[in-house]
């Protein structure tokens, strides 16, 4: 199918972009960094177009629905959201070295989607999934997940810079530790707002489909565990002034919880959300 081909192409686009950002960081080349930005933007456009195409194709085969309904489509949207969020950060903080740490996540998500372990077909929706709340739920959750992924990448950047001897030539192009810390925090704040919206839209959807807004199914519970975890991190920072390596490690821990909520639950635990793993 055409959209799947285009989306496989975007896997290579994000790989090339990640490579360019990494090269720009290692060799301190502004030109290569610019190439990274252009590659990211072009791939993002291609991906947006192919999501639109996949939407159109779903109507062609009589299954008409937004491309946000199974593991494959959620991975594609996840990488789309990571690239979008990253470009926003790059624009705001004017530092292309962030890309070397953030964009690999967009590549990994796309690579996993295209790997063949995930069913890439457009499937007609069972009745329970035919709801606009589903679209709202997936969009909000994955914007949140994307922000947490970027926070994790930038946290790795922080730890590398923090644990290296001062004024190493290579690391001098990275933002100051204080600024990196601020980016990690802001990404988590942004992710937390969207995760909250994601849990809420999911609850409303469940209530309109089954008459129960919360049933403690493993996926729901893990999203709440993730929410508690980030809530604790934000409180530790706001009221007790936690920052630096401690917050960086917690940002990485938080993202592990996100990955488990997203992926681990489908394969290790069973529950209502089983269709999310198809």
């Amino acid at each position: 199918m055409d959209s799947i081909l285009l989306l496989s192409l975007s896997t290579f686009g994000y790989l090339a972009a990640s490579g360019a950002y990494l090269a720009a960081f290692l060799f301190k080349s502004k030109k290569v960094g610019l190439a990274g930005t252009i590659l990211t933007a072009l791939t993002l456009l291609t991906q947006t177009g192919s999501l639109g195409l996949r939407w159109y194709e779903s109507y062609q085969i009589g299954a008409g629905h937004a491309p946000l309904t199974n593991m494959y489509e959620s991975l594609v949207f996840f990488s789309w959201a990571i690239a979008s969020f990253y470009l926003l950060l790059e624009y705001k903080f004017k530092n292309k070295n962030l890309g070397a740490f953030a964009m690999p996540f967009a590549f990994i998500a796309m690579a996993f989607a295209s790997s063949g372990w995930v069913d890439q077909n457009i499937n007609p929706l069972i009745p329970a999934l035919q709801s606009n709340w589903l679209i709202a739920h997936v969009v909000t959750c994955f914007i949140g997940y994307a922000a947490f992924a970027v926070a994790c990448g930038i946290a790795v950047m922080y730890l590398i810079k923090n644990n290296s001897p001062k004024s190493t030539g290579l690391l001098s192009t990275l933002p100051e530790l204080k600024v990196i810390d601020d980016i990690i925090h802001k990404s988590m704040v942004y992710g937390f707002l969207w995760l909250s919206a994601g849990i809420i839209t999911g609850a409303i959807w469940a209530n309109s489909a089954w008459g129960t807004y919360w049933s403690w199914d493993p996926k729901e519970t893990w999203s709440l565990i993730t929410w508690f975890f980030y809530a604790a991190i934000l409180h530790a920072r706001f009221t007790r002034g936690w920052h630096g390596s401690r917050i960086a490690w917690l940002a990485i821990g938080g993202f592990l919880s996100v990955v488990f909520t997203y992926y681990g639950v489908n394969y290790l635990l069973s529950g209502l959300h089983s269709y999310g793993g198809q």
């Binding site: 893990w222 508690f228 975890f229 604790a232 409180h235 530790a236 007790r240």
Partner: peptide, 17 residues
């Protein structure tokens, strides 16, 4: 508050397994 949040997060895991 921090203690309860971490405790709730940790305890909630039991029922998912």
């Amino acid at each position: 508050a921090l203690f309860i949040l971490f405790l709730l997060a940790a305890a909630s895991i039991i029922g998912t397994i």
